[in-house]
Simulated assay, not measured.
Amino acid sequence: MIELMADKMARGIKQRAPEHPATLAVLKHSLAILINTFSILVLTLVLGIVTEHLYETLAVLISFAALRMVSGGLHLRSGTWCVIVTTAMVLLVSHVEMTGSLTWKITALSFILAAAFAPTDIQKQSRIPQKYYPVLKVLSMILVSVNFFLGSPVVAASFLVQTLLLIPWKGVKNK
């Protein structure tokens, strides 16, 4: 669905500005990313308000996105599925409650996973040269470490979900 919307919009843009240097494929890809991101933000924030967990939803969105930017991770094949799965994950994680001890343990597990697997498949979402991948690993570890001071259960759960997406399953390239 997202891909169809992006394709229709890209064709409309190209019809109105045929001399623009961006190709149809580039426009479609860029629009798909924008539609995907906007859809996730709107859906999760509306659901956060409806479920009265807006602050937790914001914490999950920010922590997940920040870690994902520096660590990479598994990608779904469809933008529509990405919106559905990400929205469901954010909604579920924003309702997580756990003890301080469990929060610390989950943060420690996320730290270990980030140290072992970050960055994973980062080349699919950035143009950062491979020589900087060790820096991305350190940034991932530092970011996860922040929750040792925050002690947030939802941030711990968010980081755990993201670091599980770093594990190089079949077809996923680590580093």
Rank of each mutant, 00 (worst) to 15 (best):
G72E: 05
G72W: 05
P119G: 05
V96T: 10
G151E: 12
G79A: 10
T57P: 01
V144N: 00
K173S: 09
H75F: 10
L166P: 01
K131W: 11
I49D: 04
H53L: 06
L58T: 04
V138F: 09
T80I: 05
L91V: 14
D7H: 14
I35F: 10
R68A: 00
Q162L: 03
Q15H: 07
T163L: 06
P18R: 04
L31K: 06
L61E: 00
A88C: 15
I142G: 12
I62A: 12
V135T: 11
D7T: 14
L43T: 04
S94G: 08
F64W: 07
V155W: 01
S140A: 14
V161W: 07
N147G: 08
A66H: 04
V85K: 13
V60N: 01
L54C: 06
A116M: 12
A25F: 10
L109V: 11
W169K: 12
F64D: 00
V26K: 14
M69D: 02
L31S: 07
Q125K: 15
P134T: 05
R16F: 05
L47M: 08
F111Y: 14
K170Y: 08
L61K: 04
G12Y: 08
V146H: 06
G73V: 04
L74Y: 15
L76M: 07
A25S: 15
A65L: 05
K131Q: 11
V138L: 13
G72N: 09
A59T: 01
M69P: 00
A10Q: 04
I62G: 04
E52R: 09
V172M: 13
E19M: 15
V161H: 00
T120R: 09
A17W: 13
A65K: 05
A22I: 01
A88H: 04
G100L: 08
A10H: 02
Q162F: 03
F149L: 15
L109W: 03
K170I: 07
W104V: 08
P129M: 15
V42S: 07
T120V: 08
L27F: 14
F111V: 11
S126L: 14
K170R: 10
R11W: 07
K173N: 08
A118Y: 02
S158Q: 02
S110V: 10
L24M: 15
R16D: 13
S30W: 05
E3C: 01
K8G: 10
V85T: 15
I106G: 02
